[in-house]
């Protein structure tokens, strides 16, 4: 059974989290465990690399919604890099297409935070 693997690295104050697999109510807890402490940091700049994320449910999107308020209150943000059409559709179904920033160019997302 496919699950979720998470790779977390930090580069120039930006947290890059790469997801590989599926993000549903079963796997969301492991991402929560990473995002929650990051949201409590001083200036959370997070890039979610979702190139290899094949599926997301509302429980998965809930991981981001659950931390976005404290993150944005400190001028931080969560950007998404390389989202697939199928995964993006779930954001669209929740009318969240403008709520998060989606990038197809990793450097552009990186620059957005660096500036």
């Amino acid at each position: 059974m496919k699950t979720l693997s998470i790779n977390h690295e930090k580069k120039d104050l930006i947290d890059i989290i790469k997801l590989d697999g599926i993000l549903n109510a079963d796997t969301a807890l492991s991402l929560d465990a990473i995002l929650k402490p990051l949201s409590e940091g001083q200036k959370p700049y997070i890039i979610m690399d979702v190139s290899e994320l094949t599926y997301i449910s509302s429980a998965g999107i809930g991981c981001f919604i659950g931390v976005i308020k404290p993150i944005r209150s400190k001028d931080g943000d969560i950007y998404f890099y390389n989202i697939s059409r199928k995964v993006k559709r779930v954001f669209d179904l929740l009318d969240m297409e403008d709520f998060f920033k989606f990038f197809t160019d990793f450097d552009e997302a990186f620059k957005c935070f660096s500036s």
């Binding site: 509302s58 429980a59 308020k69 929740l94």
Partner: peptide
Amino acid sequence: LSRGGLGVHI
């Protein structure tokens, strides 16, 4: 910060 209700909406 509500995460509930999303599933029903979908």
